[in-house]
């Protein structure tokens, strides 16, 4: 039996455990809200986390039998973007990726079918090879998540700086202290609204 099939069979229970573990990083009152309120609009955090881990899990498995590039970044981005502005240290914000390894290991360990294959035929070796492949895919996911986390944090600092810059620039402009046309255009462009030549 292929690892991919095994994991697909266990998709629901793995995802449920994964979701649970992520929610445990929030205070108890909060985690029950995040779990139980199903409305996408009124519980955007819970909804986004659930959808993201579903997507990540499917992408992880999908990629087990081909080596094409991974298209999990939007799922990863959605969940990390939230954690990057909540009260988490970077390591805690990203630890949910490593949780998945643990959950999968535990689920497989308890699986009677897998155990009997390994005991009787020794064909469990194939699974072991696949498992280490899965591990490196999860590692790749972790590495990507560092990049995304950093990008989110940089964005926050960028927004803070822009708030300041916007105000100062316009004040100077109004006091007629800025004559530098090029500088004006550069700033306008930075803010995404370079006036087109009329």
């Amino acid at each position: 039996m292929e690892l991919k099939n095994l994991l697909s069979e266990k998709r629901d229970v793995i995802l449920e455990r994964w979701f649970d573990l992520i929610l445990k990083s929030y205070p108890a009152d909060t985690s029950s809200f995040l779990r139980n309120q199903k409305n996408q609009s009124t519980n955007p955090v819970g909804h986004t986390i659930l959808k993201s881990i579903e997507g990540l899990f499917d992408k992880l498995i999908e990629g087990l039998d081909h080596t094409s590039g991974d298209s999990w970044s939007s799922f990863l981005d959605n969940i990390i973007r939230i954690k990057a502005v909540q009260d988490f240290t970077p390591s805690h914000a990203l630890s949910f990726i490593f949780d998945l390894k643990k959950i999968i290991r535990e689920e497989l360990k308890n699986d009677p079918v897998l155990n009997s294959i390994q005991d009787n035929s020794g064909s469990g070796n194939g699974i072991t090879v696949e498992l280490s492949k899965l591990d490196s895919r999860i590692d790749a996911l972790a590495l990507d998540s560092f990049d995304i986390y950093m990008k989110c944090r940089e964005k926050i600092y960028d927004l803070k700086a822009k708030e300041f810059e916007n105000k100062t620039f316009r004040l100077l402009q109004m006091a007629n202290l800025i004559y530098d046309k090029e500088e004006e255009q550069r700033l306008d462009k930075d803010h995404g609204n370079l006036k087109k030549a009329l």
Binding site: P27, P44, V45, Q86
Partner: peptide
Amino acid sequence: DKCHFFIGSGD
């Protein structure tokens, strides 16, 4: 659970 700050922060 109606406050945007609770919904967004979980605090």
